[in-house]
Design a protein around this nucleic acid. Structure first.
Lengths: 138, 138
DNA sequence: TCATTGTTGACTACAATGGTCAACTTCGCA
DNA sequence: TGCGAAGTTGACCATTGTAGTCAACAATGA
């Protein structure tokens, strides 16, 4: 049940964008430097966030990326889903048809409850919440 | 954030044992057949459960495995921990020393809350709860 | 037109996962 | 006391996923 660096780095990158929200286009280079992530790797992390419609990019000189919506309207559940795929700990929670045992499987109930609990946490926190906490710490 | 087959199969094996609790030693072969898990692979899944003190094994003719404690006293958090290691989605939650940013990191707060929510679900469910649900469904 | 910046995809290295096999140990029972 | 049933251990392998690099390319502003 570990998160990959995709989720960890990706969230840090978005948090960085949230902290610089309203400042226009932010070059990936700057994010990479501040968050200590390889620029090349960061490029790969940004791609799914663009696909998910969370960030918008402009290339060319003075280009960069920025958040499409205000940070207060970006739930962490969206972020994690974009970066890591479905939050379900096992696939049969999302799609019961994958396993013939689904209907009778008591284990599946647990995984289902587990996901619910996780979604609840991630649904109730926004990038803005995170940015505020971060600012308080300097 | 996916669970590996270790966690999925392992829990199914323990649930099988819970359903046959009180019947003495259960051969791995029987569990493997009922749960449709390769016997050889099941042997590997049982090992950490023995180490964690959740099951006891006896080898030789008429040997097998059984639960050390009654199913009502085995929390799923123990099970998952034995099978998958720490429940923490990122290591720095368990050991802040791993990352210099820990103290200032707002992301870490989220992972921490996420783990709390998961632990709460897994702490409040026992193998007996699961076994009861399973019996009701036939 | 040129430097800057994001985009894309190939490629590599490494580790984890899922699984098999075989030698070994232990124990019950005839 | 020895045979066979059953779990134990560890080597081994194929596949997949992860982390990361690199280079060619496209678009943009100055």
């Amino acid at each position: 049940m570990k998160l990959s660096t995709r989720g960890r780095y990706g969230l840090r990158a978005l948090l960085d964008l949230a902290l610089h929200d309203g400042e226009g286009l932010i070059p990936l280079k700057d994010i990479a430097r501040r968050q200590e992530i390889s620029l090349h790797y960061l490029e790969h992390l940004i791609a799914p966030l663009i696909t998910a419609g969370l960030v918008r990019s402009t290339r060319g000189a003075r280009g960069g990326v920025l958040l499409v919506k205000p940070p207060s309207q970006i739930k962490l559940s969206e972020v994690i889903q974009a970066l890591e795929g479905s939050i379900a700990p096992v696939e049969c929670v999302r799609d019961p048809g994958l396993c013939q045992r689904s209907a009778l499987c008591a284990s599946r109930d647990v995984w289902s409850e587990l996901m619910e609990a996780m979604v609840q946490v991630l649904d109730s926190t926004t990038l803005e919440d995170l940015a505020q906490r971060q600012r308080k710490r300097g």
